[in-house]
Computed example of a mutant assay.
Amino acid sequence: MRWAAPDIAPGPFALLRLVTASAVLSILLLVLRQRPIRPSPRVLLLTLTFGVLSFALYTLVFNWAGHFLDAGTVALIINFSPLMIGLGAVFFLGEAFSRRLFSGILTALLGIILIAVAGSLGHVAIVGLVLSFLAAVLYSAGVLVQKVVLRSIDPLATMWIGCLAATAALLPFTPQAVTAITAAPLSTILGAVYLGAGPTALGYLFWGYAMNHFSTGQLASSNLAVPALVVAASAMLLGETPPVLAIIGGAICLAGVGITQLRRPPQRLQE
């Protein structure tokens, strides 16, 4: 996304990505699905909401943030989302509020403050920080809605309906997308196709199946590996690295997320 940012606007890039994801999921649905999809009106509405939040709005804001910040800083901020998911699970899914969650929130907030200070010192763009944080909120809300939807319909159907809803929501960008296809470099268009087929269609599909086998908090903690990978790849491929203060803040923030995912060791039985 960061590599393609100079060549294409956030809206058209998001639409191209979602069109590709919808096409890939439609093919998978035709090949793998054996029964019709018949969600109740409530589940259908929740699935549409999931699609608009997780794909249309999140992808749009995520792309927009990439026009202001390096990829590593964006990844560091968005990975505040596991804490948001944990809080959302407490308030909306009835999960218990634990001391670990409270400690993790305080620790992660310290990290967010340091990243914000990096912005106030001019090391990173404040607009990019706000957009990245908004993307984290949208992502977290989408995960919580998806968790509820997966109680009623399978991941493939959830993803397919969600991607179609997101594509429809982004249709106002169609004229710009058509122009971008003819004006942008072929490599940028192929980048949008890759993001649609890989991280969006297959990545979110695998994520949906995993959500049926693990708790929301456990699964969200797997995102802790993302910032390190992004920072390393961004440095090698794009020549970009976050400012030192942002890296320190991001590390503290991830430590806070990690605290929330700690599990007590099983107690040994006395002989």
Rank of each mutant, 00 (worst) to 15 (best):
I115A: 01
P265Q: 09
P41F: 02
I113R: 01
A118S: 13
R35C: 06
S54A: 12
A232T: 15
L205N: 04
G88R: 05
A71N: 02
L53T: 09
D154K: 09
G142F: 06
T107S: 06
A183C: 14
V178P: 05
G203K: 07
G104I: 06
V19K: 00
L195Q: 11
G162A: 11
V19F: 10
N63L: 04
I112N: 02
G119I: 04
A255M: 04
P242F: 01
S54M: 13
I259N: 10
L45Y: 01
Q146D: 00
Y194Q: 15
W207K: 03
T179M: 14
H67R: 09
M236Y: 13
G72N: 11
L32V: 12
S54L: 12
S221R: 03
M84T: 09
A169N: 01
P199S: 06
T59E: 06
L224C: 12
C163P: 00
G111R: 03
L138I: 12
I27H: 02
L229C: 10
A4C: 14
L93C: 13
F55E: 02
R38E: 09
M1E: 07
L190P: 12
P36N: 08
S54Q: 12
S120Y: 00
R2W: 02
H213I: 11
G86S: 15
F68G: 02
E240R: 04
L106H: 10
A65D: 02
S22C: 08
V24N: 05
F55Y: 10
E95Y: 09
V244K: 07
Q261W: 08
Y58M: 07
A118V: 08
H67M: 09
A220S: 14
L245I: 08
L30R: 15
I78K: 01
V231N: 00
G198D: 11
V61T: 12
T73P: 02
L245W: 04
F206Q: 06
T260M: 10
A14V: 06
G11L: 07
L32M: 14
R99P: 15
A125Q: 10
A135T: 11
L237I: 13
V230I: 15
V24C: 05
G11F: 10
L150N: 08
L44Y: 06
L60I: 12
F62N: 02
F97D: 12
P227Y: 01
P175L: 15
